[in-house]
Protein backbone atom coordinates (compact mmCIF):
# COMPACT_ATOMS: atom_id res chain seq x y z
CA UNK A 1 0.00 0.00 0.00
CA UNK A 2 1.12 3.50 -0.88
CA UNK A 3 1.17 6.64 1.19
CA UNK A 4 -1.72 9.02 0.68
CA UNK A 5 -0.10 12.33 -0.20
CA UNK A 6 -1.74 15.74 -0.32
CA UNK A 7 0.58 18.08 -2.15
CA UNK A 8 0.32 21.85 -1.72
CA UNK A 9 -3.46 21.91 -1.89
CA UNK A 10 -5.21 25.27 -2.23
CA UNK A 11 -8.92 25.94 -2.47
CA UNK A 12 -10.89 29.17 -2.45
CA UNK A 13 -14.59 29.87 -2.57
CA UNK A 14 -15.14 33.33 -4.00
CA UNK A 15 -13.15 35.77 -1.90
CA UNK A 16 -12.44 33.28 0.83
CA UNK A 17 -9.21 31.31 0.74
CA UNK A 18 -10.28 28.11 2.50
CA UNK A 19 -7.14 26.01 2.13
CA UNK A 20 -3.70 27.32 1.26
CA UNK A 21 -0.76 25.22 0.21
CA UNK A 22 -1.68 22.39 2.52
CA UNK A 23 0.59 19.38 2.41
CA UNK A 24 0.00 16.21 4.36
CA UNK A 25 1.12 12.61 4.13
CA UNK A 26 -0.85 9.72 5.58
CA UNK A 27 0.81 6.36 5.98
CA UNK A 28 -1.23 3.28 5.13
CA UNK A 29 -3.16 2.14 8.19
CA UNK A 30 -2.50 5.33 10.15
CA UNK A 31 -5.03 7.35 12.13
CA UNK A 32 -4.95 11.16 11.82
CA UNK A 33 -7.26 13.64 13.48
CA UNK A 34 -7.96 17.13 12.16
CA UNK A 35 -9.16 19.89 14.46
CA UNK A 36 -10.04 23.51 13.86
CA UNK A 37 -12.76 26.10 14.28
CA UNK A 38 -15.95 26.04 12.23
CA UNK A 39 -15.51 27.25 8.67
CA UNK A 40 -11.76 26.69 8.56
CA UNK A 41 -12.01 24.16 5.73
CA UNK A 42 -12.07 20.76 7.44
CA UNK A 43 -14.98 19.45 5.38
CA UNK A 44 -13.46 20.96 2.27
CA UNK A 45 -10.23 19.10 3.00
CA UNK A 46 -12.05 15.76 3.36
CA UNK A 47 -14.01 16.42 0.16
CA UNK A 48 -10.76 17.06 -1.71
CA UNK A 49 -9.14 13.94 -0.26
CA UNK A 50 -12.22 11.92 -1.29
CA UNK A 51 -12.08 13.38 -4.79
CA UNK A 52 -15.54 14.98 -4.51
CA UNK A 53 -14.13 18.51 -4.80
CA UNK A 54 -11.28 19.54 -7.08
CA UNK A 55 -8.60 21.70 -5.51
CA UNK A 56 -7.69 24.93 -7.30
CA UNK A 57 -4.09 23.82 -7.22
CA UNK A 58 -2.10 20.97 -5.77
CA UNK A 59 -2.96 17.30 -5.97
CA UNK A 60 -3.81 14.17 -4.05
CA UNK A 61 -1.66 11.15 -4.79
CA UNK A 62 -2.27 7.54 -3.85
CA UNK A 63 -6.00 7.81 -3.25
CA UNK A 64 -7.22 4.21 -2.90
CA UNK A 65 -10.16 2.80 -4.83
CA UNK A 66 -12.41 2.23 -1.86
CA UNK A 67 -13.07 5.35 0.17
CA UNK A 68 -15.57 5.30 3.04
CA UNK A 69 -16.93 8.67 4.11
CA UNK A 70 -19.05 9.50 7.14
CA UNK A 71 -20.34 12.86 5.98
CA UNK A 72 -21.13 15.69 8.33
CA UNK A 73 -24.79 14.97 7.44
CA UNK A 74 -26.14 11.41 7.75
CA UNK A 75 -27.04 11.08 4.05
CA UNK A 76 -29.11 7.96 4.63
CA UNK A 77 -32.02 6.64 2.57
CA UNK A 78 -34.78 7.53 5.01
CA UNK A 79 -37.47 5.26 3.55
CA UNK A 80 -35.43 2.11 3.97
CA UNK A 81 -34.21 -0.02 6.85
CA UNK A 82 -30.72 0.27 8.28
CA UNK A 83 -29.88 -3.06 6.63
CA UNK A 84 -31.04 -1.78 3.24
CA UNK A 85 -28.81 1.28 3.65
CA UNK A 86 -25.86 -1.04 4.24
CA UNK A 87 -26.83 -3.29 1.31
CA UNK A 88 -26.87 -0.21 -0.91
CA UNK A 89 -23.11 0.20 -0.57
CA UNK A 90 -21.93 -3.39 0.01
CA UNK A 91 -24.08 -4.96 -2.70
CA UNK A 92 -24.34 -8.06 -0.49
CA UNK A 93 -27.78 -9.64 -0.60
CA UNK A 94 -27.47 -12.69 1.65
CA UNK A 95 -26.36 -12.93 5.26
CA UNK A 96 -23.67 -10.46 6.15
CA UNK A 97 -21.87 -11.48 9.37
CA UNK A 98 -19.74 -8.36 9.28
CA UNK A 99 -22.82 -6.16 9.27
CA UNK A 100 -24.22 -7.99 12.30
CA UNK A 101 -20.87 -7.69 14.07
CA UNK A 102 -20.70 -3.97 13.46
CA UNK A 103 -24.32 -3.33 14.43
CA UNK A 104 -23.76 -5.29 17.65
CA UNK A 105 -20.63 -3.33 18.44
CA UNK A 106 -22.66 -0.15 17.96
CA UNK A 107 -25.50 -1.41 20.16
CA UNK A 108 -27.89 -1.42 17.19
CA UNK A 109 -28.35 -5.18 16.82
CA UNK A 110 -32.10 -4.92 17.50
CA UNK A 111 -32.65 -2.07 15.05
CA UNK A 112 -31.22 -3.59 11.89
CA UNK A 113 -34.60 -3.80 10.17
CA UNK A 114 -35.90 -0.51 11.54
CA UNK A 115 -36.74 2.16 8.94
CA UNK A 116 -34.14 4.90 9.26
CA UNK A 117 -36.90 7.54 9.32
CA UNK A 118 -38.05 6.22 12.70
CA UNK A 119 -34.58 6.35 14.26
CA UNK A 120 -33.26 8.93 16.68
CA UNK A 121 -30.49 11.28 15.60
CA UNK A 122 -27.85 9.26 17.42
CA UNK A 123 -28.99 6.02 15.82
CA UNK A 124 -28.87 7.55 12.35
CA UNK A 125 -25.34 8.75 13.03
CA UNK A 126 -24.28 5.24 13.96
CA UNK A 127 -25.95 3.75 10.87
CA UNK A 128 -23.93 6.20 8.76
CA UNK A 129 -20.79 5.02 10.54
CA UNK A 130 -21.79 1.36 10.10
CA UNK A 131 -22.30 1.98 6.40
CA UNK A 132 -18.78 3.31 6.00
CA UNK A 133 -17.28 0.40 7.97
CA UNK A 134 -19.28 -2.32 6.16
CA UNK A 135 -18.01 -0.92 2.88
CA UNK A 136 -14.56 -2.14 4.00
CA UNK A 137 -12.78 0.97 2.78
CA UNK A 138 -9.04 1.37 2.37
CA UNK A 139 -9.40 5.01 3.43
CA UNK A 140 -11.98 6.09 6.00
CA UNK A 141 -12.95 9.76 6.27
CA UNK A 142 -14.89 10.85 9.34
CA UNK A 143 -16.45 14.32 9.41
CA UNK A 144 -17.52 15.01 12.98
CA UNK A 145 -18.81 11.46 12.96
CA UNK A 146 -19.24 11.18 16.74
CA UNK A 147 -20.95 14.52 17.21
CA UNK A 148 -24.24 14.39 19.04
CA UNK A 149 -23.65 10.99 20.63
CA UNK A 150 -23.68 10.93 24.42
CA UNK A 151 -20.52 10.02 26.24
CA UNK A 152 -21.00 6.30 26.73
CA UNK A 153 -22.33 5.62 23.24
CA UNK A 154 -19.63 7.84 21.78
CA UNK A 155 -16.94 5.71 23.38
CA UNK A 156 -18.64 2.51 22.26
CA UNK A 157 -18.84 3.93 18.72
CA UNK A 158 -15.18 4.94 18.67
CA UNK A 159 -14.25 1.46 19.94
CA UNK A 160 -16.28 -0.02 17.10
CA UNK A 161 -14.50 2.11 14.51
CA UNK A 162 -11.09 1.16 15.89
CA UNK A 163 -12.01 -2.52 15.97
CA UNK A 164 -13.67 -2.82 12.57
CA UNK A 165 -11.57 -0.43 10.49
CA UNK A 166 -9.21 -3.31 9.78
CA UNK A 167 -5.99 -1.82 8.51
CA UNK A 168 -7.51 1.08 6.65
CA UNK A 169 -6.17 4.61 6.84
CA UNK A 170 -8.34 6.96 8.92
CA UNK A 171 -8.67 10.73 8.61
CA UNK A 172 -10.99 12.09 11.27
CA UNK A 173 -12.32 15.62 11.66
CA UNK A 174 -13.41 16.44 15.19
CA UNK A 175 -14.13 19.32 17.53
CA UNK A 176 -13.15 17.40 20.66
CA UNK A 177 -9.57 17.04 21.72
CA UNK A 178 -10.60 14.02 23.79
CA UNK A 179 -11.89 12.23 20.70
CA UNK A 180 -8.64 12.79 18.86
CA UNK A 181 -6.70 11.50 21.87
CA UNK A 182 -8.92 8.45 22.17
CA UNK A 183 -8.53 7.53 18.51
CA UNK A 184 -4.79 7.96 18.84
CA UNK A 185 -2.40 8.84 16.05
CA UNK A 186 -1.39 12.24 14.79
CA UNK A 187 -3.22 15.50 15.24
CA UNK A 188 -3.46 18.28 12.67
CA UNK A 189 -4.56 21.74 13.74
CA UNK A 190 -6.17 23.68 10.89
CA UNK A 191 -6.57 27.42 10.33
CA UNK A 192 -6.34 28.81 13.83
CA UNK A 193 -6.49 32.38 12.60
CA UNK A 194 -8.88 31.84 9.72
CA UNK A 195 -11.78 33.36 11.59
CA UNK A 196 -10.00 36.48 12.74
CA UNK A 197 -8.08 37.44 9.66
CA UNK A 198 -10.10 36.91 6.55
CA UNK A 199 -8.42 34.73 3.98
CA UNK A 200 -5.39 34.19 6.23
CA UNK A 201 -4.48 30.70 7.29
CA UNK A 202 -2.87 29.62 10.51
CA UNK A 203 0.67 28.37 10.46
CA UNK A 204 0.95 25.09 8.59
CA UNK A 205 3.85 23.17 10.00
CA UNK A 206 4.80 20.03 8.11
CA UNK A 207 3.16 17.41 10.20
CA UNK A 208 4.71 14.06 11.02
CA UNK A 209 1.70 11.94 10.30
CA UNK A 210 1.14 8.22 10.44
CA UNK A 211 2.51 7.58 13.90
CA UNK A 212 -0.26 5.31 15.04
CA UNK A 213 -0.86 4.39 18.59
CA UNK A 214 -1.87 0.84 19.34
CA UNK A 215 -5.63 0.71 18.80
Amino acid sequence: MKNLVMERISKRYGEKQVLQELSLTLRPGSVTSVMGPSGCGKTTLLNIVAGLVKPDSGRVLGRPGRVGFVFQEDRLCMDFSAAANIRLVTGKTGKDPMMYGIFSALGLQDSIMMPVREMSGGMKRRVAIARALCYQPELLLLDEAFKGLDAQIRQQTMDCVLKWRGDCTVLCVTHERAEADYLGGALLQLGRTADREEGEQGSRFPFPSGITREA
Binding site: F69, F71, R75, C77, A84
Partner: peptide, 24 residues
Protein backbone atom coordinates in the same frame (compact mmCIF):
# COMPACT_ATOMS: atom_id res chain seq x y z
CA UNK B 1 -27.68 16.00 -4.50
CA UNK B 2 -25.98 15.01 -1.22
CA UNK B 3 -27.45 11.51 -1.47
CA UNK B 4 -26.30 11.29 -5.08
CA UNK B 5 -22.80 12.36 -4.03
CA UNK B 6 -22.83 9.68 -1.34
CA UNK B 7 -23.90 7.08 -3.91
CA UNK B 8 -21.16 8.18 -6.30
CA UNK B 9 -18.52 7.91 -3.58
CA UNK B 10 -19.66 4.41 -2.60
CA UNK B 11 -19.81 3.45 -6.27
CA UNK B 12 -23.43 2.41 -6.12
CA UNK B 13 -24.67 0.78 -9.34
CA UNK B 14 -27.21 2.74 -11.33
CA UNK B 15 -30.07 0.29 -10.81
CA UNK B 16 -29.62 0.32 -7.04
CA UNK B 17 -29.46 4.10 -7.13
CA UNK B 18 -32.74 4.19 -9.02
CA UNK B 19 -34.39 1.94 -6.46
CA UNK B 20 -33.03 3.35 -3.20
CA UNK B 21 -32.49 7.01 -4.01
CA UNK B 22 -34.59 8.14 -6.96
CA UNK B 23 -37.73 6.07 -6.38
CA UNK B 24 -38.61 7.37 -2.89
Amino acid sequence: PQLLEMAALYRVKWRRKLFYIYLP
